[in-house]
Nucleic acid binder design. Structure first.
Length: 194
DNA sequence: CAGGATCTACTTG
DNA sequence: CAAGTAGATCCTG
């Protein structure tokens, strides 16, 4: 099996929009199949573009984007996101898609270890490969790869920068072993820290 | 074939 | 307890 997807051209982007949050400006992309990519705010993007509210986009994307924005805000605020846009995960390999699918089952506030995820997909020894699949997750936050920790509740890694993983987990009230504190500079988004 | 967002089991300060 | 080391394992490009 494992037929190489010759069709379904996943690379074609219909629209690239942004979602403005207290944590910065997220950049998201849509294909014909749905949300295909979420990018964490970068310092450069923070110098917000014209991005005046909701740009004019055709209807499929428009409602998808509303859901994306809402879900993003909800999760960042520590609230359960209920409504998601369709996801286009066609760029992934079968293995990665299996992992991403399982990640979606980890509810807010919960965590799993890379080893546990490996077991969930029925490939208990592919622990390290699971880490790779998490890192390849094209839709972070909405597909909660940040809820996967290393053994003994250590933080583990994160492609988008460990600080984001910390922030997201803290927002969800998850406790983790202070792995390594270093790694990142000043982050000042303090969404009303109570 | 080399390299990772790992893990377990030691061994050392 | 924190921090290395070694070997095992498996998916990817």
């Amino acid at each position: 099996m494992r037929v190489r997807q010759a069709t379904s051209n996943p690379g074609i982007i219909l629209a690239e929009l942004t979602v403005s949050t207290e944590a910065g400006l997220f950049r998201v992309r849509y294909s014909v199949a749905g949300l295909s990519e979420v990018e964490f705010p970068k310092e450069e993007n923070d110098a917000q573009l014209p991005a005046a509210a909701t740009p004019s986009v055709a209807e499929p994307v428009k409602s998808w984007h509303e859901k994306t924005a809402r879900a993003l805000h909800d999760i960042l605020a520590g609230r359960e996101a209920k409504d998601f846009p369709p996801f286009d995960l066609s760029i992934g390999t079968e293995f990665q898609k299996r992992v991403w699918h399982v990640l979606r089952k980890i509810e807010m506030g919960q965590t799993r270890s890379y080893a546990e995820v490996a077991e969930m997909i029925g490939n208990p020894k592919a622990v390290r490969a699971v880490g790779g699949a998490c890192g390849a997750n094209p839709i972070p936050v909405l597909i909660p790869c940040h809820r996967v920790l290393a053994a003994r509740h250590k933080l583990g890694g994160f492609s988008g920068g460990l600080n984001w993983k910390r922030i997201l987990l803290e927002r969800e009230g998850v406790l983790f072993s202070s792995d390594r504190l270093s790694e990142t500079p000043e982050f000042n988004w303090r969404a009303d820290d109570r």
